[in-house]
Write a protein that binds this DNA or RNA. Structure first.
Lengths: 192, 192
DNA sequence: CTCCTAATCAATCAGATGATTGAATCACGA
DNA sequence: TCGTGATTCAATCATCTGATTGATTAGGAG
C-alpha cells in the first residue's frame, strides 16, 4: 500500500538520513533499526527491504557522511587563499552541520573494529594530508610561509589539530578552546 | 562457593579491569555484562552483586582509566624539562598501554551523551590546559620559547593535536603521521 | 481486465541482554 | 558447634533487537 508515489531512491535516502541523525544523537551504541524506520514513519520490514542488514544501512550512512566533506577544499586561488578557504570551510561546516562531526567521530572510532570502514577513512586521511602538503609547499614558494616549516610535518600537525578540535571538542562551557587553538594554528602557518 | 579467598576489593578490581579491556577492544557498542563476568570466570549475578547496574560498572571503569593519566605530568625540573617529560610520558604510555587511548577515545565520544561523564572529562581537560599554559609561560621566562607564542593559544593547539594524534590515529599503515606531527609540534614550541 | 512487480505492513521468530531471585557455600566469631 | 554475614551460582524474567514471513496494495504492461 504505497501511500505516496516517491521519486526513485527517495525512501532509501530518507532512511539513510534518519540513521545518520540517530548516530549523531545516540552513537552506534544507540542505533536501532526500529527507531530509524519509525523516524521515517515506516515499518521495520520496509527498512530491511532496502537494506538487507543493519551493516548495509551503516555503509550507506558512511558514504552519505563522507560526501559532505568534499566542499571544504576549494579549488581556486593561490595556495594561501586555498588554505584560508579550507579553514573557513571547516568553520562553516561545523556551524551549519555540527552533527556531521559527531558522526565522523563515531566513524573514526569504529574504524578500529571495522576493516572496510578503516580503509575508507585511511583514503580520506591520505587525500587530506597530500592536499595540505602540496598547499603548504605552494605557500612556501609564494614566500608566504616561514622557511623552517616542514610541509610534511606541518600537514600532519594541522590534520591532527583539526581532528582534535572538531571531533573531540569540550562539550561544556563556551567553545573558547576551539577558537584559541584555530587562531594559534593559523598564526603559526602565517594565515593571520 | 568462593573458590579462593580474595583480598577485599580484588574481585571488584578484576571486574573493572575486564570491563576496561572489553571497552578497549569492542567499544561501548560491544560491552556486555555477561562477557565481562565470563572473562573473570564468574557468574553475571556476581557482577551485579558488586555493580548493581551496568552504569555503575562503567563509572568504575572511568575512574580506573582516568587514574592512569596522572603520571605524564612529572613534577620536577625547569618548565622546558617538564614539557619534554610530558611528551615523553605520553609516548611511553601510548607504547605500553595502547588500550588506554582507545578507552579514552570512547569516553570522550560518550561524554556528549552522558552529563556526568562530560563533567569529569571537562575537569581533566581544564587541568591539562592550565598545566600546559603555566609550563609555556615558564618556558617563555626561561627564554626558551619564541616571544610570539601565546601560551593560551599554544596550549590549546597542543591539547588538540595530542588528542588528534593519540585518540584518532590512522590505524593502518605505519604510525608515520603520529611521529611527523609530534616532531613538528615539538619543533614549533622549541623542544627540538 | 488481467497479470506482474515494487513497496509496504502486521505478526512473529530466535537469540541476546540487563537484571532478579532464592538457594547454596564458606570463613569466622561466639 | 552454631549462627551470621559475605559471596557466589543456577535458573529465570521481561524486554529488546535484528531479521523473516506471508499477505496486501498500487501502478503499469499487454
Amino acid at each position: 500500500m504505497p501511500k505516496t508515489i516517491h521519486a526513485p531512491e527517495a525512501r532509501r535516502d530518507e532512511l539513510v538520513a534518519a540513521a545518520y541523525r540517530e548516530i549523531a544523537t545516540s552513537g552506534f551504541e544507540g542505533l536501532r533499526t526500529r527507531e530509524v524506520a519509525g523516524a521515517v514513519g515506516v515499518n521495520v520490514a520496509t527498512l530491511h527491504y532496502y537494506f538487507p542488514t543493519k551493516e548495509d544501512l551503516i555503509r550507506a550512512v558512511v558514504g552519505y557522511a563522507m560526501s559532505r566533506f568534499q566542499s571544504t577544499l576549494a579549488q581556486q586561488g593561490t595556495a594561501m587563499e586555498r588554505l584560508r578557504g579550507h579553514f573557513r570551510g571547516l568553520r562553516r561546516l561545523a556551524h551549519e552541520e555540527p552533527e556531521l562531526f559527531r558522526v565522523m567521530a563515531e566513524l573514526m572510532i569504529r574504524s578500529s573494529r571495522d576493516q572496510k570502514l578503516a580503509e575508507i577513512i585511511r583514503k580520506l586521511n591520505e587525500y587530506w594530508h597530500s592536499t595540505l602538503r602540496s598547499l603548504l609547499r605552494g605557500a612556501k614558494e609564494e614566500r608566504a610561509l616561514p622557511k623552517d616549516v616542514d610541509p610534511d610535518g606541518m600537514s600532519a600537525v594541522i590534520v591532527a589539530t583539526l581532528k582534535g578540535v572538531y571531533l573531540l571538542p569540550e562539550r561544556f562551557g563556551p567553545p573558547e578552546a576551539l577558537d584559541k587553538a584555530l587562531r594559534q594554528l593559523e598564526h603559526t602557518i602565517g594565515l593571520r
